[in-house]
Every structure is written in structure tokens, then in C-alpha cells.
């Protein structure tokens, strides 16, 4: 527990702190904001935190960019996380694009992109269905 107050510990792990803050921010936005576009934004922030986590783990102290220089003594940062994150970024973009497309369609159908209003409309639909069910029994 005392290590949490150790300045070296805090500064030494700042990329993780940053990652956690971004992750939580992103999740918070997804959960608390009613506007669907904001949810997608939150999702992006969340995913970005993961990107940062990966890339930061690839950095080696004293390492240079992983481009072959011909110098046999050279220390390179690990390129693999970069590659993984490129994949993840692409996935993230595709997800965002899909999410936004869905939002456009939702806007067409529901005339709103606020979660509360949509919920309200759907509840009304559900109530009507239940009424029909009750009327039949």
C-alpha cells in the first residue's frame, strides 16, 4: 500500500495510470451519456486507452524506432505491439463506422438519437404489444 505513494512508482508507471484514466473515462461516457453518438465517442476513447497500453509496452529504454539501420549494436523497440495495434485500430474504425451507420438508421426510424427517448418509444411499443396479448387471452 505504501508503494502507491512512492513517487517513483507513480511516475514510473504513468503510462498505466494514463491508460486506466482513459479506460475509465471511455467506459463512463458509454454508460452515462444518453446520446448515441457520445456513446460511440466513449467507446473510441476506451479503445484508445488499450492502444496506448500496447504501444507503451513495446517501448524499450534506449530503443529506437524499429527500422533496420544496419548497425548490429542497435536496440530496437518492439515492433510487434505496433502491428497488433494497427489491427486493433482498423477494427476500431470499422466498429465506429458501423456504429455511426446504425445511428443514422436509428435517427431515420425513431427521429431521435437520445437513448432515453428511444427507450420511451420502445416501451410504448412493448406496452401496446402486451395490451394486444392481454386482449387475446
Amino acid at each position: 500500500m505504501s508503494e502507491l505513494f512512492d513517487v517513483n512508482f507513480i511516475i514510473g508507471h504513468f503510462q498505466y495510470w494514463l491508460g486506466i484514466i482513459l479506460m475509465m473515462t471511455g467506459l463512463f461516457v458509454v454508460v452515462s451519456r444518453g446520446n448515441l453518438v457520445k456513446k460511440v465517442v466513449g467507446l473510441n476513447v476506451f479503445q484508445t486507452s488499450v492502444f496506448m497500453l500496447y504501444i507503451s509496452m513495446g517501448k524499450i529504454t534506449g530503443g529506437t524506432a524499429p527500422i533496420f539501420t544496419g548497425n548490429p549494436q542497435e536496440v530496437y523497440s518492439n515492433p510487434l505491439p505496433h502491428v497488433l495495434i494497427l489491427t486493433a485500430i482498423v477494427v476500431g474504425i470499422a466498429t465506429t463506422a458501423l456504429g455511426l451507420a446504425l445511428i443514422v438508421r436509428i435517427r431515420e426510424e425513431y427521429e431521435t438519437i437520445e437513448e432515453d427517448n428511444i427507450q420511451h418509444l420502445e416501451n410504448a411499443m412493448q406496452r401496446k404489444e402486451d395490451q394486444d396479448a392481454g386482449a387475446m387471452i
Partner: peptide, 23 residues
């Protein structure tokens, strides 16, 4: 549409958690 959207949000969070674990 909203079902797909909710699935998207939750599914992406799930996949991202998976990736964090892998990381």
C-alpha cells in the same frame, strides 16, 4: 436497430477487455 447498437457497444467492450487481457 437499437438491439444491434446495444450489441455493438457491449460486444466491443467485451472484445476490448479480451484484448487488454491479451496485452
Amino acid at each position: 436497430l437499437t438491439a444491434a447498437f446495444n450489441y455493438l457497444i457491449m460486444g466491443t467492450i467485451g472484445a476490448t477487455f479480451f484484448v487488454i487481457g491479451l496485452g
